[in-house]
Design a binder for these strands. Structure first.
Lengths: 333, 333
DNA sequence: TTGTACGCGTTATCAT
DNA sequence: ATGATAACGCGTACAA
């Protein structure tokens, strides 16, 4: 308590320099209509007193914080960190600062985060959360805070969106596998509450298999490397082969490590595909075949779009990132 | 421009409900001295109008922002993301929100970040930056914003610190290696501008070797998986063995992958040790022997300490995280 | 070029 | 229990 007590204010600079707060304010905001001599004097006292303008008061007065709200799941995933990094990179370059709001993969948390975003008075927001509905975004919209929604195809006056396209590649990859002569039955790793993206992929996985009349499997799994690893060590004691599609690198790596460690060969016995590939896909061995979307690029792009949206100069309100299938050594085709 | 225009203010709630703004304010802050009936009425109009208090105005009035500034390098490292995650977890639980300030491994950037932290009016700050000096921290101190400095042993009135102890373990690990009969000459991977921690470790590495009279090497390296991998593929064409100490998992993995890919055996021919281990140390193969500090725990601890500091109830201003050597399969001992 | 005074949206003090 | 009103620190018409 009583922190920030002895903050130097513009009043003190005004008094100490002998000029009015208006003049001091002009010096701070680097306006041109101030005499060189007084500017120097004011700047001197600013330095001498160690004055730093309060971003809070500035924001309240101008109705602009230079603050961007970022809503992301609090899961400690590499691809989320990558996206955050991309956002931050261009935000900083453009003079914005990021405020973090995290959700725990539940819709209530996401709604709460949105509330907070509104109260926090940010200039704009980037939302990456699977659980959000269109009506939820409408809410933000009604408060007219410019928003980019990632991985959710929504729209609105002050809303732009970035969508991921995994399903086409997934379908192609599956079909191609069988056409090339792939013989293993595929298993989709189902993770409870892992968001809309995974759900959509699973649906496409099922549809594709039904369409071509191939058997398929779905296994429930924990979203944890260690538990998945243990589960699959057990699994591979009785099942000596399979083709597994996992949500992200860690999980995919858990499966191929389990296979390798019980003496099976990847990809000769067991094949593994990672849906959301990061750089770890080519660090683990065998390297993971994966669907790649450069999340850092996604972050950058969303921030650029948001800035345009804030300036009311965003032309295309929607941007699509198409996932690329990168064949590495964990699959045959 | 003109964003946030139609924000509903406390005035409008006051007018619409028929009560004064003072009463509305009391309802918002859940004060007890307000009649049940009026409370309900006010809450109803708040809901009806969709009123959300402005955190900005609240902060200005109360001199409390519920905002924590976090200064971290903008490098996209897993261990940084882990720490951020830890900080965020307890911050949220305690009703704080995180504002991010990133630096690019230069002292100037770090100083700039500090400036920003001060202007941003945060309730407290957590600084994780290798480049910072004591005098820099003194600066923050003079503005009396409670601060926890990670990986830097500084002190001050409103400053706490968390320090990492790698050097003791490093020394022990090195000595133990030779005592157990390790025969390879060790090489320290030097990365330019990678901060004080690495520098200290390197120094200890050299000291230890001089003390026991063993030959050692230092190699310059890029802080990039791919380039390091390529460099070492070249390296291993002529050098068929070695013991390498790398800063973090990615770099260590690059070395062991390079070795493996040119046909060398880890750890029989080439041994690798990772200084800052993350969970990827046990995902890559062979699993990486590493120095472990749970960065998520570091994050949590710093946030807890900061809260105590803010409440002026922090007893021990310094906390030490001792790194643990975890022997896995990339080293013999 | 410089200064006065009001507004930004709250909280808090003091009356009533 | 409720209501005026002065802060909080700054920007900015409007005047001078």
């Amino acid at each position: 308590m009583e922190n920030l007590k002895n903050r130097v204010t513009i009043y003190q600079v005004s008094k100490a320099s002998g000029y009015s707060i208006a003049t001091v304010s002009r010096v701070i905001s680097k306006k041109s209509n101030v005499a060189e001599e007084t500017r120097l004097k004011v700047e001197e006292t600013i330095k001498r007193l160690g004055y730093k303008p309060s971003a809070l008061a500035q924001a309240l007065a101008t109705n602009k914080s230079t603050n961007i709200g970022v809503v992301i799941p609090n899961a400690n995933y590499v691809y989320i960190a990558n996206m955050l990094n991309g956002i931050n990179e261009v935000a900083n370059k453009k003079g914005f600062v990021l405020t973090l709001f995290t959700t725990a993969h539940s819709r209530d948390e996401a709604l709460l985060a949105i509330e907070k975003v509104i109260t926090t008075h940010v200039d704009g927001a980037i939302i990456f959360d699977d659980e959000l509905d269109e009506e939820d975004v409408a809410k933000i919209n009604s408060y007219s805070v410019p928003t980019i929604v990632v991985n959710s195809n929504v729209s609105g006056e002050r809303v732009g969106s970035i969508i991921f396209s995994y399903r086409n590649v997934l379908e192609k990859t599956i079909k191609n596998y069988y056409e090339q002569g792939g013989k293993r039955e595929m298993t989709f790793i189902h993770v409870h509450d892992s968001g809309r993206l995974l759900t959509k992929c699973e649906k496409k996985f099922v549809e594709t298999h039904k369409e071509i009349g191939r058997p398929y499997h779905i296994i429930n799994c924990d979203d944890s490397y260690t538990r998945t690893y243990n589960d699959f060590v057990e699994h591979f004691k009785t099942n000596k082969n399979g083709y597994f599609i996992a949500y992200r690198d860690s999980i995919a790596a858990a499966i191929e490590n389990a296979a390798t460690d019980v003496g099976l060969k990847v990809p000769q016995d067991v094949e593994v595909l990672s849906l959301v590939g990061t750089k770890y896909a080519h660090i683990v061995r065998p390297t993971l075949s994966s669907m790649q979307i450069d999340m850092q690029e996604v972050g950058k792009r969303s921030m650029y779009m948001l800035i345009d949206l804030i300036n009311e100069s965003l032309e295309n309100k929607s941007y699509k990132f198409e996932a690329q299938f990168v064949k590495r050594n964990s699959t045959e085709y």
